[in-house]
Nucleic acid binder design. Structure first.
Lengths: 157, 157
DNA sequence: TCATATTAGTCAGGGCACTGAGTATTTCTA
DNA sequence: TAGAAATACTCAGTGCCCTGACTAATATGA
């Protein structure tokens, strides 16, 4: 009897939103490459030669998850992974030609999918929507990473 | 060079939002019970005796995931599961006394967490935020479930 | 009534996401 | 310069999330 209305809970809505996106991605973008895999590939297209930790920072994934995603992309031949000769702890990542090709193809489809995803909102609402999510997510991430955004969290050399 | 700015991609933001919520839940609500588990428990507090399929419909989980979540809640003694004597295919679920107690406790903490989560937004923005997410998620779910909301999707008896 | 859907749930398999422990390498410092 | 601290990564374990194939039970209709 003391049950709660979950439709007012941002966390519950966030989960449903993410699930909806997952399904749309599968049908409109790719069944092989997932959205997090595309994010990692995209980060490497922007800055080839990044190490895993930095990639994780760019796309918002922890060390373990990056390792898994990278391993899948590597297995499919979309990126190369080599030990940094300057620092034996790091693995340096760069997209292969295949990886670049896939990235280009998915970029187009992703743009189309975003339009469909946001179609129920007016143009103004769309920018507002993205802005609100970003603010909430940034703030929540800031709770765990004190020091604030813009300011490098930990000992970036 | 043809890399994309992911901060304009709703799917990427949705994932980050959900991750941020996951972490906040862990620190502010419970390390034992997860948000989806609470959602299932909440549905059963509202309507004890539901079957798994209907619970999944209420909280937005597919059959397999509901089965897993239910099994964990059952293992911890928070719900009972019995075969429906009227229909041998169904499993009927109801919260135990322990389940009710936990649900009450987490309800309070969840409310506090929601406040913290939404704190970066003004009151007006908060309602707007929830409304926008709901509209996008509903629309995307409707793409897979033609027939529209309100109209029972499939043969509810 | 009997064969044929349809439905509820299970199971195997792949992928994302986190924590905590452990290893190798580099950096700092006494 | 040797020992301690920090860093990058791996590995094991837990949980969420989906699909597709399967089983058991019920409902339908020729």
């Amino acid at each position: 009897m003391a049950a709660v209305d979950l439709s007012a809970h941002p966390g519950h809505l966030a989960r449903r939103l993410q699930q909806a996106h997952y399904l749309l991605w599968n049908t409109m973008v790719s069944e092989e490459i997932t959205s997090p895999q595309f994010a990692v590939l995209n980060a490497l297209v922007a800055e080839p030669g990044l190490d895993q930790r930095t990639v994780g920072e760019r796309v918002g994934l922890d060390r373990s998850t990056v390792a898994e995603v990278v391993s899948r992309l590597g297995r499919r031949g979309y990126l190369d992974k080599v030990r940094d000769p300057q620092d034996g702890r790091r693995s340096l990542l760069r997209p292969t030609d295949d990886g670049l090709r896939v990235h280009r193809k998915l970029t187009v489809r992703t743009a189309r999918m975003n339009q469909v995803f946001l179609a129920p909102l007016s143009d103004g609402e769309q920018t507002l929507f993205l802005d609100l999510i970003r603010r909430v997510a940034d703030a929540a991430e800031g709770l765990r990473n004190p020091g604030g955004p813009g300011e490098p969290a930990v000992g970036r050399r």
